[in-house]
């Protein structure tokens, strides 16, 4: 009897850790989401998820937290939501349990250190589910609402006053922000050609990117592209940019890195709510391994 009870206890414990699916079955309109894997192009293979933003049905959300994984935050959010995918996005600092770069979640400052040289993308996730990216190198961030002058350009890197203004604006707007590598901007690759040579960590890794742009019909699309073959950041970005721009025919507004790093958390759901295990091979699906997470959902 005791043995049976012990078996049931450990069996439940094991499977309770593994459960990641939202408590309700996740479904969405397949007309808004296209999932493909192992797509051949120039002797390489690509996996991608293309999401149409028209009608504001597909929305983005970002979670971040220091020292505690975002598992509970995600599960509270995902309950009753139609999740399309989630992926770890921001970089982690030492110990792999804290955020490396500037991060604000729903107006709450989590990490205030703004990297001044490498990470040029300031990603803003609006409450409406949209995503915008400002190139920090250009110093031309424009804001609207909460007392911001829409014509004023903010230079967060070089003007401390502008940076504080932006933080105050985020608090008022309950905005979510994180900083990462900007790989392409205005349909041009922006990561330096010698980035892989100069990288501190030269280990080739599987890569994952978010590309936002418009197709030939002018429809705004968000593309998460997954490259299971390992490569340097620049090499991987160059190939994926070429694929999205020339094969998928998307004029790229921006392309950012979704850092695989120590987290490598990635999961994709089909329109019927089942997990698409073909595209997530080699990555981790447990959100309990993640300290930040970019989520796309259908509403």
């Amino acid at each position: 009897m005791k043995l049976t009870l012990a078996f049931i206890f450990f069996f439940n414990l094991f499977f309770s850790i593994k459960t990641e699916k939202p408590s309700t079955i996740s479904t969405y309109d397949p007309n808004y989401v296209e999932i493909r894997y192992d797509q051949p192009y120039k002797n390489d293979y690509y996996d991608f998820i293309v999401m149409r933003r028209e009608g504001n049905k597909v929305k983005a959300k970002y979670f971040a937290q220091n020292y505690l994984n975002i598992g509970n935050k995600y599960r509270n959010f995902a309950s009753g939501k139609n999740v399309i995918l989630y992926a770890a996005a921001g970089y982690l600092g030492d110990g792999y349990n804290n955020l490396k770069n500037f991060t604000i979640e729903n107006g709450v400052v989590i990490q205030e250190k703004l990297d001044n040289s490498k990470f040029d993308a300031l990603v803003i996730i609006y409450a409406t589910g949209g995503i915008a990216v400002s190139n920090l190198r250009n110093g031309d961030l424009k804001l609207q609402g909460s007392g911001a002058d829409p014509s004023r350009k903010l230079d967060l890197r070089n003007d401390a006053f502008d940076k504080q203004f932006f933080i105050d604006w985020c608090k008022k707007e309950s905005a979510t922000v994180f900083q990462t590598h900007l790989l392409a901007f205005n349909n041009q690759l922006s990561i330096p050609s010698d980035a892989d040579v100069k990288a501190i960590n030269k280990d080739p890794r599987e890569r994952r990117f978010l590309i936002v742009g418009k197709d030939k019909a002018g429809i705004l699309k968000h593309v998460v592209i997954n490259r299971r073959e390992t490569s340097g950041l620049r090499a991987g970005a160059e190939k994926c940019f070429d694929y999205v721009k020339n094969y998928l025919g998307i004029t790229v507004s921006f392309m950012i890195n979704l850092d695989t790093g120590a987290q490598n958390v990635f999961n994709v759901y089909n329109s019927d709510g089942t997990v698409n295990s073909d595209i997530t091979k080699g990555s981790e699906s447990s959100v309990d391994k993640s300290y930040n997470l970019l989520v796309y959902y259908y509403e």
Binding site: N66, Y91, G93, D94, N98, L99, K100, V109, I110, Q111, E112, K113, I200, N201
Partner: peptide, 12 residues
């Protein structure tokens, strides 16, 4: 710095 939410990244 970390206590002030300006955590530097240390490569290890």
């Amino acid at each position: 710095c970390a206590s002030k939410k300006f955590t530097p990244a240390v490569n290890m």
